[in-house]
Design a protein around this nucleic acid. Sequence first.
DNA 1: TCAGTGATTAGG
DNA 2: CTAATCACTGAG
Length: 180
Amino acid sequence: MKTGSPTDLMVPGIRIPRDFYLRDVLDVAPDLIGKNLVLKYKDGSYFRYTLTEVEAYRGTEDKACHASKGKTSRTSVMFGNGGLLYIYLIYGMYWMLNIVTGTNEEPQAALIRGIGGISGPGKLTKILGIDRSFYGEDLVTSERIWLEDTGIKPPYKTGPRIGIDYAGEYWKSVPWRYFL
DNA sequence: TCAGTGATTAGG
DNA sequence: CTAATCACTGAG
């Protein structure tokens, strides 16, 4: 069994059900802080890391959200029900891990920016081995990746989202980044 | 500050 | 087909 950093709760919890993800991303994203991300590998080993940093991307209005350019083959999963993973490659090197939220035709997702002691969305997917093959994976039914609720709700801070200079002043400034 | 790196997208 | 873009990272 692989374990995380000393900051991890490292407490097994209960798999989070569908309803959790079907809410608005502005409710789900802060609720993700303190939840455990669990990965099970083919050799039987586990990762169980606490989510420490998350960003919300919300709807076609949000100029920072990939769905603002409409539904494409890449973003299609965001237009479905919550609980599935939206994965994409950025700068030719880094896979981004996003959790789709909301209900049908409400394109939303939460970007996972930090887990356990690992800070940075590109670094964590590299360490976890998350790639293209996780696109559309369902956190509610998957045998290799899911979220657990330990019942602990740590206090969190908020701030503007990172790396979205192209989105314009307003969308750049909304405090949709949540972190420990 | 800046290069690396390649999928995705819009446009011809 | 071409070219621009990019929810990042690590080196200097």
